[in-house]
Design a protein around this nucleic acid. Structure first.
Length: 463
RNA sequence: GGCGACGUAGCCAAGUUGGUAAGGCACGGGUCUGCAAAACCUGUAGCACGGGUUCGAGUCCCGUCGUCGCCUCCA
């Protein structure tokens, strides 16, 4: 039985879909006004694993992730760069998709955008509906959601309107009826992108577009709505308010939120400026490393992003890869009863851990145990034939987590020369010319080729 | 100040309905080896602190301290 933590109830709940065997899932994607950083990667990876596991469990997953491609920041950035806002957004959208691909994140079923006609039409329909029902009003070309009209406002984040006002951090808007009301439509200034409506030309507020895209792509009620936990308030709270006020139906069954990635003890964010872009990270590491970093933690907790945690992830990946190595040349077969039992047990333990709110760290622990047994079996003389079932399971389970674990490859031509070099070195070693053989090894290492001498011969691999 | 999450070895961390602490990284010892590396074997915690419930608590309750997130744009 799959259970997942629901932010709204703050409890783990049994997962039951609205429609048998199908999952409707909406993830809040980025506002595309700048390069994405590794915090975005974390979030994307978390929900990719959720999606992959649901599919592994047999669900048909409709996975929607949006792009917010019009907002104040995009316009401001485009202005300073002197380019068209749409052009700016388009560029970052393509970059983001490339990054997801590099991180082996499965493409969404669909990536709706705020500015698409189907979305914009839905947004305007929603606003008109909300105005009609008294949940929204227009002032000077803007439209605002009337928070006090919504009885259960605050149910996701556990906030109470009165207390928030006591906090006095909400800027008093001069034209709003109430400081807590939020914009669902913004009047356009001269030269800004705008869409036509009966109350004025402008653009949607940030929260309404997600509600509209979700409604349009997945329907009035969905199973899982996810995003970073910094979106709980006000973004997701407002999405609920608008959507439920408009449709009269429950918006999302389960709310899932990932914790923030921490750089030097602080949340990584554009506003603080302490960021590492995905591009920079992938220049130095393969995508699996970032994924391992995320898998080793709990998706709801803050994730430490440090040199030490990165190299730990890197070495963990190497270790997992070691499980796929072929039997030694002198493998003669051995008793693999225990390995077989462990293989079966690992699959069960993996599923049990993942069923418990996607406990990837626990699941990984079981996978590492299988790796160790595969390796010790190999050391004891197991043949490839004997190792294979365990290795297949290892491949299957790590794939569910989205790990690629591919050995690096050089060009086929290079392989021939390396083989030749290794043969020569073996000859040199029989003559005990250690200095020369070590030099060959060291130099190849610098070229990315790792040589290992075992009793039954020398092997090498790209690393 | 309000709401929420969390505090397990040097670091990252798991821990189903309470019964005497997974795994990874790092480090030490060992097997193998010309050396190295890899792999394997092996060592290192009593769970922030203080109370309480219980035959028994990391696991439940209360309090204290601390960390992080949100309350403004943010994955």
């Amino acid at each position: 039985m799959l259970r997942l933590y629901n932010t709204q109830t703050r409890k783990k709940e049994e997962f039951k879909t609205i429609e048998e065997g199908k999952v409707r899932m909406y993830i809040c994607g980025p506002t595309v006004y700048d390069n994405a950083h590794v915090g975005h990667a974390m979030s994307a990876l978390v929900f990719d694993v959720v999606r992959r596991y649901l599919q592994y469990r047999g669900y048909d997953v409709n996975f929607v992730m949006n792009f917010t491609d019009v907002d104040d920041k995009i316009i401001a950035r485009a202005n300073t760069k002197g380019i068209d806002p749409f052009e700016l957004a388009e560029g970052y959208i393509q970059d983001y998709k490339d990054h997801l691909d590099d991180l082996n994140i499965l493409p969404a079923t669909i990536n709706p955008r705020a500015t698409e006609t189907k979305t914009m039409t839905k947004i305007i329909t929603m606003i008109e509906g909300l105005i009609e029902k008294g949940y929204a009003y227009t002032v000077a070309g803007d439209a605002y959601f009337r928070v006090h009209k919504d009885d259960d406002y605050g149910k996701l984040s556990g906030r109470i309107l009165e207390e928030m006002q006591a906090g006095a951090r909400i800027a008093v808007g001069d034209i709003k009826e109430n400081p807590a009301d939020f914009a669902i439509w913004k009047n356009a200034k001269e030269g800004e992108p705008a869409w036509e409506t009966s109350w004025g030309n402008g653009r949607p507020g940030w929260h309404i577009e997600c509600s509209a895209m979700c409604l349009h792509e997945l329907g009035e009620s969905i199973d899982i709505h996810g995003g970073g936990n910094d979106l709980i308030f006000p973004h997701h709270e407002n999405e609920i308010a608008q959507s439920e006020s408009f449709t009269g139906k429950p918006f999302a069954r389960y709310w899932m939120h990932n914790g923030m990635l921490q750089l030097s003890g602080e949340k990584m964010s554009k506003s603080i400026g302490n960021l590492v872009t995905i591009h920079d990270f992938l220049d130095d590491h393969e995508g699996d490393v970032m994924r391992m970093l995320v898998l080793n933690g709990n998706y709801r907790s803050p994730l430490a992003f440090t040199d030490e945690s990165i190299s730990a992830a890197e070495n963990g990946i190497k270790r997992l890869k070691s499980g796929f190595r072929l039997a030694t040349a002198q493998a003669a077969g051995t008793d693999v009863e225990q390995l077989f039992a462990k293989t079966v047990a690992t699959r069960d333990a993996f599923t049990q851990a993942m069923d418990d709110d996607f406990n990837t760290a626990g699941a990984l622990g079981h996978i590492f145990e299988l790796v160790r047994l595969i390796n010790s079996s190999r050391d004891s003389g197991a043949t490839d034939q004997q190792l294979k079932p365990a290795q297949n399971t290892l491949r299957e389970l790590t794939s569910v987590l989205g790990l690629e674990l591919q050995e690096k490859e050089g060009s086929g031509d290079a392989d021939k020369f390396i083989n030749l070099l290794v043969e020569v070195r073996s000859e040199v070693r029989t003559q005990k010319l250690w200095a020369l053989s070590d030099q060959i090894r060291d130099n190849l290492k610098e070229l990315g080729v790792t040589i290992e001498d075992a009793k039954d011969g020398t092997s090498w691999r790209w690393e």
